[in-house]
């Protein structure tokens, strides 16, 4: 139905909608995040939920303490290699549809600790991430922005057709390999099905001033 007609009808007190709109509206308006934080970014996440920034305005009033009741995983903070298997396991335990926000430089890439001996170089090596928030730490406004971005993403999802989201495609996985802590590192060091090495042209790096080609 075209937008204009819909608006006209709404003015007359008739609400016309589609199942897809209703379904997406329902999902996007009650995204409950999983209640866990990993490092300093978690403090900003906590601030976002409190009265001043009030994430509850957007439908995330409760942070669920159980992955079974949560829709959104906010990976807020440094993921150590010791913690990574637990994070992936928690993600696997969440019910579909589920989303991930990777909050802060650490969760994106390891951040200031990228070359550390015990820090995972980005949670997206093991689980699919929907929204990345750069920053160290990102301000609460940035988390709100990411949250709204996720809501827009959910709103645009098609319930039918080849582009329908993962949870409506039975053959796509909803659980991902949990890495194991081995003698020197995690094994495997990444899940190739969801993370490929981005294009790097290392042969030119360091040759000119900017380090780029």
């Amino acid at each position: 139905m075209d937008e204009q007609l819909k608006n006209e009808l709404r003015r007359q007190g008739v609400v016309a909608t589609t199942l897809q709109e209703l379904y997406n509206w329902g999902r996007k308006s009650s995204i409950w995040p999983l209640n866990f934080g990993l490092a300093c970014c978690a403090i900003e996440m906590i601030a976002t939920t409190m009265a001043r920034y009030d994430l509850a305005r957007f439908g995330a009033e409760v942070f669920r303490p159980s992955p079974r009741q949560a829709d959104l995983m906010i990976v807020a903070g440094t993921v150590t290699k010791k913690m990574a298997p637990q994070v992936v396991r928690l993600y696997n335990q969440m019910a579909e549809p589920k989303y991930v926000i990777s909050m802060g430089a650490c969760a994106i890439s390891g951040g200031p600790f990228k070359q550390g001996y015990n820090v995972l170089k980005g949670i997206d090596r093991y689980i699919p991430v929907d929204v990345y928030i750069p920053g160290c730490p990102p301000r609460p406004e940035a988390l709100l922005d990411a949250f709204l971005m996720l809501q827009r993403k959910i709103d645009e999802q098609q319930l039918t057709g080849p582009d329908r989201p993962r949870h409506l495609q039975a053959e796509l996985p909803s659980e991902f390999t949990v890495p194991e802590c081995s003698e020197h590192d995690l094994t495997p060091t990444r899940n190739d099905a969801i993370w490929q090495v981005p294009l790097v042209n290392i042969s030119n790096a360091g040759k000119n001033e900017s380090g780029r080609d």
Binding site: Q115, Y117, V197, P198, V200, G206, G211
Partner: peptide, 22 residues
């Protein structure tokens, strides 16, 4: 101590990190 060789993606490699990446 030698840390594991996971230098496959270093967007802003320089100095020691650049050597490890190469």
């Amino acid at each position: 101590y030698v840390d594991p060789d996971d230098y496959e993606y270093e967007p802003t490699a320089h100095d020691e990190v650049l050597k490890r990446t190469q």
